[in-house]
Computed example of a mutant assay.
Amino acid sequence: TGAARLDRDPATGERVRFSFDAHLAWADRNDPRAATGTFRYSHAVGKEEFTAFVRVDCLSTGGPVATVTGIVEETDVPGLRKKRVGVSVYDDGKRDRLGYSRLVSSPLTDEVPPCNAAAPHEKVVRGGGDFRVLPWVYDGMAG
């Protein structure tokens, strides 16, 4: 869970915002594709802003890192509705980081696989980013 703001270029007013509320399914925590929740993001340059509302379809965590994907349900980006997008987060407690599938593939032309996104490569704005990643614990038996 959490939210983040990335201010890329103050001169152009480019800014990106994300918010997450994604959870592993308690009924089947061993299946990342049974995850539930949503996330939202917006990307603005100057006065132009694009947004998307995404329904989670996969969540994978390991230590302080989580990768979440979902299907876009609402957006003002032509051709993006019903496409899968992915985001990764690194919860370091001080200066969180974020990555997204768009860095390596376009959801408009490429198929983004479940639970896939680029590594969390961007620093969240100082004072921003309040991610809370809970590590996944396998419930199955070894062997």
Rank of each mutant, 00 (worst) to 15 (best):
L80Y: 02
Y90G: 03
S42H: 12
T109F: 03
G86F: 02
E122V: 07
V125W: 11
G86C: 02
G63T: 11
G46D: 07
D110Q: 14
L24K: 00
S101E: 07
G93W: 14
Y100R: 15
V124R: 06
V89I: 08
A117T: 05
F20G: 06
P64H: 07
E122I: 14
S101D: 05
F53C: 04
S105E: 15
H23N: 11
V89T: 01
A35R: 00
R102C: 14
A34R: 12
L108K: 06
V65R: 14
G129K: 04
P32G: 01
R84A: 05
G46H: 05
E74I: 11
H23I: 14
D96P: 09
L108M: 10
D91T: 06
H23W: 12
V68L: 02
V68W: 00
E14G: 06
A22Q: 03
P107E: 01
F131W: 12
C58Y: 08
P120D: 10
T67R: 12
A35W: 00
D31C: 08
S106G: 11
V77T: 15
G99D: 05
A44S: 11
R102N: 13
R33F: 08
E122F: 15
P32T: 01
D91G: 12
G86D: 05
A35T: 00
V125Y: 07
S42G: 11
T75E: 05
T61F: 13
S60Q: 08
R55H: 09
V45L: 10
E49H: 02
W26A: 13
D130Y: 09
R40I: 14
G63C: 10
L59F: 05
R40Y: 12
H43Q: 06
P114M: 05
E122C: 09
V124L: 14
R97V: 05
V124K: 07
G128S: 11
K123I: 03
G13V: 11
K47F: 03
F20D: 10
V68P: 04
T36Y: 05
A52M: 03
R15Q: 15
V54F: 00
S105R: 10
D28Q: 14
F131P: 09
R84E: 04
G37L: 01
V112K: 03
F39Y: 08
E74R: 13
